[in-house]
């Protein structure tokens, strides 16, 4: 296959993947009436758990040092964010409440893990890191576009805002690693 064609197909595939993630999250967000703070807390915790679950798959399947290092950072950082969110929920007396957005995140994640588990070697590394790029873009747009504006409690709103720089750094880090697999 010629190089340009390969590149085009790759670009299409990642664009399509990103679109589907963005579409499903924004569609869910639009289809729901405003989220309550307990629902927002649940979405935030779930979004972090999902990325930890992807990191666990990578730690099992990858042998690439940069992928493993990235996965370790995802696991540690998203656990730290969950701990912070859990502490705030406890302080505010908020019990995270399952809802359509967190359910959709979980069901999409199960499909993605299945797809990742079906791959190995270089193909796995590329699929994992492509998904990390797409997933972080999608989560950033949900946090900035839905969770922050809809959060009622000021401290919850502030915590969500303070997570955005970490998500953006993770996205740039993922894009750095992605370059290795997009030649």
């Amino acid at each position: 296959m010629n190089m340009n064609l390969t590149k085009t197909i790759t670009a299409w595939a990642s664009a399509a993947m990103l679109c589907s993630v963005m579409f499903s999250t924004s569609a869910v967000a639009q289809g729901t009436s405003k989220l309550t703070d307990p629902e927002i807390a649940s979405v935030a915790v779930t979004a972090n758990q999902v990325d930890i679950s992807y990191a666990e798959v990578a730690q099992k399947k990858s042998k690439n040092a940069d992928v493993l290092k990235f996965a370790q950072t995802m696991s540690n950082d998203h656990k730290a964010i969950i701990a912070k969110a859990a502490a705030l929920c406890k302080k505010l007396g908020v019990t995270p409440k399952d809802n359509s957005v967190s359910k959709k995140l979980n069901s999409d994640a199960a499909k993605t893990r299945k797809m990742l588990n079906s791959k190995s070697g270089e193909a796995f590394n590329k699929a994992y890191i492509d998904n990390e790029v797409a997933y972080h873009k999608a989560v950033i747009s949900v946090v900035e576009g839905v969770l922050v504006p809809q959060a009622q409690n000021a401290e919850l709103k502030q915590l969500l805002q303070s997570v955005v720089p970490a998500l953006k750094e993770h996205l740039m880090h993922a894009e750095m690693v992605q370059k290795e697999f997009t030649k």
């Binding site: 540690n76 950082d77 730290a80 964010i81 701990a83 912070k84 303070s162 970490a166």
Partner: peptide, 11 residues
């Protein structure tokens, strides 16, 4: 001396 303070929630 330069002292670095980690005020973030992550390591």
């Amino acid at each position: 001396t330069v002292v670095f303070y980690n005020h973030d929630m992550v390591t």
